[in-house]
Design a protein around this nucleic acid. Structure first.
Lengths: 342, 342
DNA sequence: TTTTATTACGCAACCGATTGCGTAAAATAT
DNA sequence: ATATTTTACGCAATCGGTTGCGTAATAAAA
């Protein structure tokens, strides 16, 4: 690979007969440069095929105009929608977005964090890997004063900016809905319990059970990464039980959809014999038959809020230790849980 | 936002009592540095919390160890899986991936291309926006000798490296399959026809019709962005026809799924009255009932191939003008098209 | 007309790592 | 013992913008 010589501000300077400093300023409409010079410089720049050298600029100015986003994986509707929200805000402020996937591996997350810091991103938005429970790899951002915001899968016991939804409340309402539909043996598919999102969903579920004086049965609570495969396995386990459940509240749609598939495959009637509810409201949820009752998770707004909060940090009072934004969710009732009709 | 002073190789140099040059070399195991010094330097670096300054390194070395990926949008299963393929190869070579979305807007694509070049990515992988038909914004990569590979949605009439699937053949086989199932009025949902992927799918479809002496009816071919909404509208249009089709071959699964939804909604029997086939094999395809017949599009492998080809370009003989890799697809027959059984 | 303010630009240091070239010291060869 | 090679490192320029400070020229104020 050969690289041709590239046009620099020095080339433009020579061409327009001004100093490189003037070119630099002219290109960003600095107030002290005359309109005429600005015009000349810009015209020459365009005509010569000039492209600013971002690394050079970043080195000197200590600003990269880039924010990083670290997620488990982008090929999930919820995540990619969230990222779009981040991009909307970032782009509107002239920033670009650097995306990294951990694939739910803490090691990759650590490596990604190093890379993000080395790239000197101006801010970082993070949704944690499933098993991460030590947050030391983010210290360098805190120490250096780089804005840092966690979203969705946020760390427990860490004073940091966070953006989440009302997981507890949503789970409570959903469970209550299932109870109202006549279910009294409700199972739960959860994620890693040190991950707040999943812990809170379980706690909301438990609280609803308690409030309605339903027994709590540990064998009905199963934890996994909530993938499609795991969804099938978890459902299998439930139906291997002496007394299977009459409802499943899954912490995500992916696993809930698998449960429906399992049931259809085994001839278990939904929602009559088994009501199913999910979380997120992926497109899948409305397409599967019967359509899946779920919680609308405002992915796009979560991304927007996280980015906004990130930019807010830059102007913020140093006295503010941390800030948590909670967004609202919405119960979406569909056929998969309607034993009684509305 | 305040930024604390950050550790540089100069700080390490002072600490270890060697020159910055030696630190720089030690950190990358340069052969001319003694093992002892390397150890000392690395220990000090870790202990002092050193993180390399990527912009500085990039500026001097003219290598960013980053490749760019430009796509329409990441929240599509096909695209995000493709990106994972790119990442696998890139990461294994120590490169990071910069992702940008055009949202199918040529203007955004142009702006993204500028940003990518300014960032001085070491290579660029592109899947074009739907309407892009002028490729001038990629000239700067060609001129500068930056490796450039198009994937999936590749440009027509441009001598560039490309990675695609056998769209024509796949479409031909699919259409033939529908004909064998007894369909003789087959509609087609296509994308923009200046986009090779979509043009070839249509041509494969047409070729199969011709070979089986079926009439070609322009009113049965509808073009759009193939989103979920568009899928419904297109199906509506088909059923507004005096004589509706008895099959639809859609250029993607998203629109095909919409067609099935439409049919179910209107009480049109699938596949009896209407056979439906898609393209891509998204998870949706296997979940909707009846399950969707489709073409398995090797998204992950496309990504891997594109990245491999990108890296290959760097060592390549300058005589090679361009190179096109074609990957194989596979017909996935499911209930949505099985009028006769297998 | 002299003084002060404003406008428009240049100088040169700087950001942090990389690298071609040079060299002292130690090792090996003659 | 002298010459040659190898090892291990330092010097200083360099990458391409950015920016604090200084200043000549022109305009406005006194």
């Amino acid at each position: 690979m050969k690289r041709a010589k590239q046009v620099t501000i020095y080339d433009i300077a020579k061409n327009v007969q001004v100093s490189p400093a003037t070119v630099s300023r002219a290109l960003k409409d600095h107030y002290s440069i005359s309109k005429e010079t600005i015009q000349n410089v810009k015209k020459a720049a365009k005509q010569m095929g000039y492209f600013p050298n971002t690394p050079a600029s970043s080195l000197r100015s200590k600003k990269t105009n880039t924010i990083g986003v670290m997620v488990s994986r982008i090929n999930r509707p919820f995540i990619s929608t969230l990222i779009s929200g981040v991009e909307e805000v970032a782009n509107s402020k002239g920033y670009h977005v650097f995306i990294a996937q951990s694939e739910d591996m803490t090691q990759k997350e650590i490596s990604n964090a190093r890379a993000m810091f080395s790239a000197r991103v101006d801010g970082l938005i993070v949704s944690l890997a499933m098993e991460t429970h030590d947050y030391g790899h983010f210290d360098v951002f805190l120490d250096s004063g780089t804005p840092l915001v966690f979203v969705d899968r946020v760390p427990a016991n860490m004073a940091a900016d966070k953006v989440v939804v009302d997981n507890y409340e949503a789970a409570f309402k959903m469970t209550q809905h299932l109870i109202e539909q006549g279910c009294n043996r409700i199972a739960h598919f959860g994620g890693a319990q040190h991950r707040d999102v999943y812990r809170l969903r379980k706690e909301g579920y438990l609280a609803a059970l308690k409030q309605h004086n339903l027994p709590i049965d540990e064998s009905l609570m199963i934890y996994s990464n909530l993938g499609a495969e795991e969804g099938l396995e978890m459902t299998q386990r439930l139906f291997d039980l002496p007394v299977p459940p009459d409802a499943i509240f899954s912490a995500n749609d992916t696993a809930a959809v698998s449960a429906i598939q399992f049931a259809k495959d085994k001839g278990i009637a939904i929602p009559k014999e088994l009501a199913v509810a999910g979380f997120n409201n992926d497109r899948l949820a409305s397409i599967i038959a019967p359509a899946l009752t779920t919680v609308a998770n405002p992915a796009f707004d979560l991304g927007k809020a996280a980015a906004s909060q990130l930019f807010a940090q830059r102007e913020e009072n140093d006295m503010v230790a941390s800030n948590t934004t909670v967004l609202k969710t919405e119960l979406i009732v569909r056929e998969s849980s309607l034993k009684k009709g509305r």
